[in-house]
Design a protein around this nucleic acid. Sequence first.
DNA 1: CGCCAGGGGAGCT
DNA 2: AGCTCCCCTGGC
Length: 270
Amino acid sequence: MIKMILENFSLEKISLSGQCFRFKKLSENKYCVIAFGEYLEMEQYGNEVIFHCSEKQYHQIWYNYFDLDNDYSQYKQFVPSTDSYLTKALSFGKGIVILNQDVWETILSFIISQQNNIKRIQYIIELLCQKYGDKKTAQNGTIYYTFPTVQSLQFVTEKELQNCNLGYRSKYIVKIVNDILQKKFDIDYLKSCNYVQCKIELMKLYGVGEKVADCVCLFGLHHLNAFPIDTHIKKVLQKHYAQGFPFALYAGYEGVMQQYLFYYDLYNKD
DNA sequence: CGCCAGGGGAGCT
DNA sequence: AGCTCCCCTGGC
């Protein structure tokens, strides 16, 4: 068990931010996530965060996963006080970080996300994990299923995937799995590319357009300059930035701003 | 019951 | 660049 004092960190907001679909709230102050084959439970009381894992695993996986090396207070320094919308969004979403997720998991997850809502995405991914992932038992006895590997999906058919309520996205998944197995697409190469190259490569995948490619760049490859534009962000940009969003002010971390704008649009009641 | 939107993208024109 | 359709579930 690891106890940390963390500023600018909120498990509650991260669990709601929609960047990871296997990050859930268990009860008041308690959360869990399944990533990189491991199950982690966490608690948060104010700035005190408890990770229920060994020190070794914390340093091997979770420290990087939660981007704890990165000080998120730096991102508000160039927001002009005249931009009241972004100022409010940053304050409202204080504690959100950009997770370092597995690339393959983000590709598959955001293919599923298209024309879908977060609750249903979570449900579909859970079905996929139960059918094609590995069944494991955590230290505390919790049974969980790991995210399916490319290998574990190599013989899957469109029809089978329909049973996971994937609809028209089934054909995308079958094709992408085959392209990766036949080495027409190389995830390791992707990891060596810069943001622009990454996006171009990802968009070669059947079913991956600009938005999904940007989500994979941001959440799976930690290119913080990727700025995914979905229906929410499009609406925000039209309504609050009719003269154009000042991307240049936030060069290198546009995607961080995107997450706060997205979260604010999704959950603020004003 | 019908209608429509939910973190889009392919395949047409 | 703009259209239509894709599958499915929940909310109104």
